[in-house]
Design a protein around this nucleic acid. Structure first.
Lengths: 243, 243
DNA sequence: CGGCCGCTTGACTATTATCAAAGATGGTGG
DNA sequence: CCACCATCTTTGATAATAGTCAAGCGGCCG
């Protein structure tokens, strides 16, 4: 069984608004004030859409979910942030809600310090700008997922993306942790929780994954999952659901 | 009947990668070299994904479609550009294909001049950066469309967005021109051409639109279209299809 | 004038949403 | 420490939406 605490050591998983790659955090560290980390209770909001942007944060532990609420109550999850990520970059006001999926530790850099740093440290400024471009690129990739992929492909894509991040960070790509609830995955992939759950079951029955705990997934057949994720046909994730 | 040439006077319609608002074009104009506009034949590629970025363009006439090709041949349209828009901002290499939907006239600013301008003209530089943020925001809005809206809502949203731009530019919001083909709309909205076509017919039969020419749409019931577009329920765009 | 391309329509199928309810799981209070 | 309750996940049955396959129509260009 995997150590559940491992989820706290994971780096960036999925691109998300205003978050930047872990390797970039070091440059930010140069300007981080020496104040204790802020602690955020599980399921509390870190900020809400429309609020004034007050800090740029570095995620130290926990996980963050970014979402928007549509006028009719529908919810869109635009991404997740993991330890090592920097969140809160962007325009004057927050464009998303940010919710702590678990108890989070965040290092805060007041926006005034951030702006001063951007003026004095050109590497810092350029990096912040590059990260917005990267987020834009990631958003367009996600558009492709939402507009062209089936439920199976979407979930496979999600799992493989998490696995790829693990590999990049030197962790095992064979298993991924899901600190978010099914509803967050569903709203991220443009599906319903039922479809997400059924697709997990389908993958399980097809031998693609092993999952005893809903938040820990072992990717038993990464190759087939990858094929699904990249739309390379082969959309046959196993036998039918067992009765 | 609308003057078809009107399409050449339209300003920004839908947000798209690397394009910026018309009112911003003036600031760019300060740095535009005095060279004749470049002419691009209809349906030819202005640039392709992965190519080195060589120029930033101002669209003078025509319309541009941005798209990405997925590995399995599926295509995603990420946006459109209209006269007044500036296209080609972004990273070192193009992240999308850009295709001329009609014969286009483009003013080209070589990337070297663009970079020099960004260094010497802070307003210019800041604007370019702001526009990337705006494009990001627009991309997230489009995520919401693709992940949560029905076909009717998506097409209504598209038409209303075009209408809103018309209003903003001082044109009539009651009619919109569609310089793109059905396949472009379909790939933009994450639908098939058949569904797009059927939805147009549905709107026509429901009295929501009048459309004699497939590229000219009169928005007969903008209120109901707007309600559909904003997901405010009322998803009943008229009687069934006539036989 | 004819062929090609794009748009529309039709019939049918497949995927996914919806509605409903039954297990799990975890936290709280007795 | 255990029981209960709330929440989350899973499963099932059904319905609706959109995709697929196929064919006809119409305009435009050669």
């Amino acid at each position: 069984m995997l150590n559940i605490d491992a989820r706290k050591t994971h780096g960036e998983a999925i691109r998300f608004p205003g978050a930047i790659a872990a390797n970039v955090a070091a440059i930010f560290g140069r300007h981080l004030p020496a104040v204790p980390s802020r602690k955020i209770a599980a399921h509390s909001m870190i900020w809400r859409e429309g609020e004034e942007r007050r800090d740029v944060f570095v995620v130290r532990s926990g996980a963050v979910c970014f979402s928007k609420l549509l006028s009719d109550g529908r919810r869109v999850v635009t991404g997740f942030a993991y330890p090592g990520d920097i969140i809160g970059l962007g325009a004057d006001r927050h464009t998303h809600d940010a919710e702590a999926l678990h108890c989070c530790r965040l290092d805060a850099m007041p926006i005034a310090i951030f702006r001063r740093a951007a003026e004095s440290d050109h590497e810092f400024a350029r990096m912040a700008q590059d990260e917005v471009s990267a987020a834009l690129l990631a958003a367009y990739d996600h558009l492709a997922v939402l507009s062209k992929m089936t439920a199976h492909e979407r979930l496979a894509h999600f799992l493989v993306a998490l696995s790829d991040r693990n590999r990049r960070l030197g962790h095992s790509p064979a298993s991924v942790l899901l600190p978010m609830r099914r509803i967050d995955i569903a709203d991220y992939l443009g599906l319903t929780i039922e479809t997400v759950s059924r697709t997990f079951t389908h993958f399980k029955n097809g031998g693609l994954i092993v999952m005893d705990d809903p938040s820990v997934v072992f990717l038993a057949d990464l190759q087939r999952l990858t094929a699904l994720a990249s739309c390379a046909g082969d959309c046959e994730p196993g036998r039918k659901l067992a009765a």
